[in-house]
Simulated scan of single mutants.
Amino acid sequence: MVSALTDLPMPGLSGGAVDFARRGGQLRVSFTPRCQLGSWFCHNEGEVPPRITHHDRTIQPRRRALAPADYLNAINTMTAAGIRRVFFTGGEPLLSPAARPVLQGIPTHQPSQYTTTLITNGLTLVKELPWLGDTTLDRVKVSLHYFSDASIAAIAEGKPGDIAKIKAGIEAAIDVIPTVELNLLLQEQNAHEVMDIIAYSRHLGTGLQIIELVDTDHNAGLGGAKIPSVDIASYLRAIATAEQVVTTGTGQGRRVFTVTGSTGPMTIEVIDASLGRHHVGQCTTCPARRKCIEGFWALRLDSAGTLAPCLLRTDLRMDVTPYSDDPAALLSAVSAHLDAFTEGTLR
């Protein structure tokens, strides 16, 4: 995908932003910081994680500042200018009143132009599928970090979950959404269920992405030792028909295994920090670099109306609310912000 992007024109963008698009960068759009679960590892796209608010109601995330039209202006502007992957996140995005009008407002597009992915915990997926199926959404990715109610409780600090409801949503979505995928964060609380989740993914024929933990200030020391992916990779290698190691582009390197699922060949990706990561100028002297395994990975547009090129550096946020009705000014400001970030001069 990255090599294909290098030949695409990126009108209106200066050097740094063009480089961002060519590296296969993504736009992560957070509809809300709220979530039914309070998973111990949640970084909440740089916002106050639900776990913290669940424990202390005086600690609240920032107020929502963007209307659906503002989201659509930003998305349409940045996809027209070269962003090729848009992810809708939260918190839990389907809890937001903005989710439906924004997703219904995304224009018809081809995957060669850009793709849209909804990342959800799946708890309300069955209820929301009737209208989701009428959108231009390309993909739903369900976070399946557990395979039992007991594991949900362990990961979400006792918050009730319903694995049967989540599985029902996944299985129903397969008939409605063009592509359904799962993602799994390796941790001590789910180590005993990883093979079950892999088997479930193969049974459904969905793609699966297995992720190593990203340490942040919010989750450090909470969930036990980090679980490396080496044993999982060894297992997948034994059953795979092909393996590809990808170390180009943005973020961490990954191992891509082709395995046989119920409907034919399918892909299981393993994000492996040992394969290295990509950094840019701003990272050279960054005090958070030793904790960072994402590198220059995504633009994050949050519900409070700020856009950041980095997960761990909230001080690098840019306020986009002054440009809500001026796409040209928005594009110019974002381009300048990214230029400064990639050159290491952003303050």
Rank of each mutant, 00 (worst) to 15 (best):
V180D: 14
M195S: 14
V48Y: 09
I211D: 07
P68H: 04
L222F: 05
K141I: 10
R202G: 10
A288W: 09
T79W: 04
A154L: 08
L204S: 10
L72S: 01
S324F: 05
V259S: 11
K159T: 14
P68L: 03
T216V: 10
V102P: 05
Q60A: 15
A240R: 00
K165S: 15
K141E: 12
A308K: 07
T263Y: 07
V230R: 05
I166C: 14
V102A: 01
H278I: 15
I170G: 05
W40T: 00
K226E: 13
V230D: 13
S96F: 09
I268D: 10
W297V: 10
S143I: 01
A164T: 15
T89D: 09
G12I: 03
R202K: 13
T117C: 14
D162P: 08
I83C: 04
I106L: 08
T32K: 00
A191Y: 06
V270P: 11
T58R: 07
E47D: 14
I119K: 07
I170N: 02
L204T: 06
I163N: 13
L95E: 11
T116K: 02
V29N: 01
D315M: 02
Q113C: 05
Q252D: 12
V126E: 05
G261S: 12
P228S: 12
L331R: 01
I232P: 14
L132H: 06
T216P: 11
H43G: 14
R237A: 11
H337K: 03
G90Y: 03
D196M: 07
I211P: 08
K127T: 12
R84I: 08
V142E: 09
T79P: 12
H279C: 14
T115C: 07
L204A: 12
T116C: 03
K291H: 12
G133T: 05
F147T: 01
D196H: 07
T248C: 11
L312E: 14
G276Y: 12
T120A: 09
A156K: 01
D56L: 02
T314E: 15
P61S: 01
I271H: 06
E212Q: 07
R254H: 10
D325N: 12
N190F: 06
T77I: 01
Y323H: 04
H109L: 11
A80G: 10
I83E: 10
L330I: 01
A65R: 06
R100A: 10
F20A: 00
L182V: 02
H145V: 00
S335V: 06
D325Q: 12
E193S: 10
A153K: 06
D19V: 08
A4S: 14
R290E: 11
I163Q: 14
D149E: 09
E181C: 14
F257A: 00
R290K: 09
L103M: 01
H218M: 08
M78H: 11
F31I: 00
L301G: 03
R317P: 15
T267N: 13
L331M: 06
S96W: 01
T115I: 04
I271A: 07
I163R: 08
V334G: 03
I210H: 10
Q189T: 02
